[in-house]
Design a protein around this nucleic acid. Sequence first.
DNA 1: GAGTGGTCTAGACCACGTC
DNA 2: ACGTGGTCTAGACCACTCC
Lengths: 253, 253
Amino acid sequence: MGTTQLDTVPEPKYWHLKTVLSEALDSEFSVGEILPNERDLAARFGVARATLRQALEQLELEGRLQRRRGVGTTVAPPRMGVAVASEQHTWPGAAGDAWQPADCVTAAPPSAVAQILESDPEDGVHIVRRSRVTHGQPVAAELLYIPASSVPDLSGIDAPSGTARARAVLRELARLDLEGEDRAVELGSARADDAKELDRLPGAPVLVVTTRYFAEGRTAAVSVATYRADTCRLTFGDSGGVEIHHDPERRAS
Amino acid sequence: MGTTQLDTVPEPKYWHLKTVLSEALDSEFSVGEILPNERDLAARFGVARATLRQALEQLELEGRLQRRRGVGTTVAPPRMGVAVASEQHTWPGAAGDAWQPADCVTAAPPSAVAQILESDPEDGVHIVRRSRVTHGQPVAAELLYIPASSVPDLSGIDAPSGTARARAVLRELARLDLEGEDRAVELGSARADDAKELDRLPGAPVLVVTTRYFAEGRTAAVSVATYRADTCRLTFGDSGGVEIHHDPERRAS
DNA sequence: GAGTGGTCTAGACCACGTC
DNA sequence: ACGTGGTCTAGACCACTCC
């Protein structure tokens, strides 16, 4: 018999292809290097372009590759650790905060947010947009929902919107006593506006972090932050400093 | 002119399709209901099956749909909140732990784990496999790496492997003074063995939670837990109890 | 304009669950 | 045996970036 192994589970082509490519990335390519284009690669492996793309998509999802239309496919650097929460709780906008306020409007919250805030959807909330840049690269976009009732002393501010108002709202919010916070992380896909800000195509995979801030015995603010899933590893606690490298043995199969 | 709007950005078909389907799911379907099969749906919308599938894939990624080969496509329930960490730190296997030990072997750790443990890859580690079931559904698979040096008093145990040994290792580990822990969350794709345990196909998107446990001034254990990304919302703190529902306004576009 | 990745088509066959 | 979703093909055209 020529076969040493029963082909009990015929492995899909794209799966095998992904393994082969992954090993090639480890041994024959360095970070930032450009791969051959998809048509050439497909021909080289003797598969249709769609099949090759299925393998590339998985590798991109795992943060191993970066693809840009009109440019090409490059080897991605290891994911960067992005600190999301530390042991002690702080208000958004506190000193050392990695976020940059972009603007602020006042409107009715989306129903899901109103539900978290346990407020009437008719009540106004201040919506602060912020963005986060690390190593010169945009990594996250955030919408911060702050009920108007959480920051009642905003009358002295004349700016109706914009960065100035965003800063004023955060300053007022920080006057409250932060009693606690909690978070949830889930997988999502980038909306068109977030995608633009994160320099990705709409639908790109993102990690959505929803944070509730508690003060005065209720939910005083809610943050919905959208992180690029391909380039980010979210860290909680003090693990931000440690870089975890790709392990061919474990992740490649 | 018949056009009221310049078609500056021709929306991809699958993107539009996803929006339409998403709205239909909100208004015309209830949880658990079976959708028409892919060939019928594609015909109904006048697109190729591959295009329809691209839309379904996104909706599955967002936790709106569940697809099973040989069965069909059903409307998924809202993601369940899965508590990953609370305010106070505890060893794995402590009372109230949601995990169930499956077995335990002693071997050399993969290089990435050895690096986190800051140990020699040649040194042995106990590898405890555990699984987590919520609402009768498997949600996560874990590999716990515990350096042999962290649990030196394991000589009295005769079981060389299996559940009994797993419990013994965890019991010994709990004798140490837990000084702290930290976590990282990133997107990954399920390896073949994890996929089987999670009742998904290989390559399915998963949330990988890496936890480091500190004791005696060093890393005493490392956990790599793989959660189903389609059905789980990972919670940190006390937010586990709150169910966040799908919001058509925000998530559907 | 040339070259890249992104979208789309219309087929075919396969693996799996159910009856 | 049948119907389902999963894989795969060989093309085509489009949107984007760079020169």
